[in-house]
Computed example of a mutant assay.
Amino acid sequence: MTPLIGIPLFLATVVGMEGFAYAAHRWIMHGPGWFLHASHHRPRKGRFELNDLYAVIFAGPSILLLAGGMRWGWWPGCTWIGAGVAAYGAIYFGFHDGIVHKRLPHRFVPRSRYLKRIVQAHLLHHVVATKAGTVSFGFLVAPKPEALKAELKRRAGAGIRAPGMADSGRR
């Protein structure tokens, strides 16, 4: 497969992963997968949390597609799609775990309106301690913080943490 077809397929996969990540976060992680994801909404004890297993789970299809496309003679597009899934995972890890939750040491301070909006939306997601009642499930696309605050207020503060626990100690 030529790069003229592969690169757009790769980019479409990265963009499409946002929809997949939104759905997985909203209906799996905040649904039947809460037993793993709950650890991400509580103060972390140590370097890892059960929620980190989702990275392993979601890496599986990427590895399978890469191996299938490169080693096992599958359709060559599988390689580009697998690389797109891996790229989305790397972007997610760097931004979400590195910048938002500061699991990696750094001095980066988001200055652009876009990055500030994404960080604030994710922190607003964490003000709710339960699997229900949360807002903002996306990663690359997030509603305006004002809209998220209004939605939390409309819900009468159901599940909101006590003052001082809004970021669940993750900053």
Results as ranks from 00 to 15, higher is better:
residue 30 H to Y: 01
residue 34 W to V: 02
residue 41 H to Q: 06
residue 37 H to D: 06
residue 43 P to A: 08
residue 18 E to S: 09
residue 39 S to C: 10
residue 25 H to W: 03
residue 29 M to G: 08
residue 28 I to T: 13
residue 40 H to V: 10
residue 21 A to C: 03
residue 15 V to W: 10
residue 34 W to L: 07
residue 39 S to E: 11
residue 35 F to K: 09
residue 37 H to S: 07
residue 23 A to D: 14
residue 16 G to S: 00
residue 28 I to D: 10
residue 39 S to I: 05
residue 35 F to G: 14
residue 39 S to Y: 13
residue 34 W to G: 03
residue 41 H to N: 12
residue 39 S to Q: 14
residue 19 G to K: 10
residue 40 H to G: 00
residue 17 M to C: 11
residue 25 H to R: 15
residue 33 G to K: 12
residue 32 P to I: 11
residue 27 W to L: 12
residue 19 G to H: 12
residue 17 M to R: 08
residue 14 V to G: 03
residue 18 E to F: 10
residue 20 F to E: 05
residue 27 W to D: 15
residue 29 M to Q: 12
residue 20 F to C: 10
residue 38 A to S: 15
residue 40 H to I: 04
residue 15 V to A: 10
residue 21 A to W: 01
residue 28 I to R: 13
residue 41 H to S: 01
residue 41 H to R: 07
residue 14 V to N: 12
residue 36 L to Q: 10
residue 25 H to E: 09
residue 27 W to G: 15
residue 35 F to S: 03
residue 35 F to W: 11
residue 34 W to C: 02
residue 33 G to Y: 04
residue 14 V to I: 15
residue 32 P to F: 04
residue 19 G to V: 07
residue 32 P to K: 05
residue 35 F to N: 14
residue 31 G to R: 10
residue 19 G to F: 08
residue 37 H to V: 09
residue 36 L to I: 01
residue 40 H to A: 15
residue 21 A to D: 06
residue 20 F to K: 10
residue 42 R to S: 06
residue 40 H to P: 15
residue 19 G to P: 01
residue 43 P to K: 01
residue 41 H to D: 07
residue 36 L to A: 01
residue 36 L to T: 07
residue 35 F to Y: 13
residue 26 R to E: 14
residue 30 H to I: 05
residue 34 W to Q: 02
residue 38 A to P: 11
residue 30 H to F: 00
residue 27 W to F: 07
residue 33 G to E: 12
residue 30 H to V: 09
residue 15 V to S: 11
residue 32 P to T: 03
residue 24 A to E: 04
residue 27 W to Q: 14
residue 41 H to K: 00
residue 24 A to K: 02
residue 26 R to Y: 07
residue 23 A to G: 07
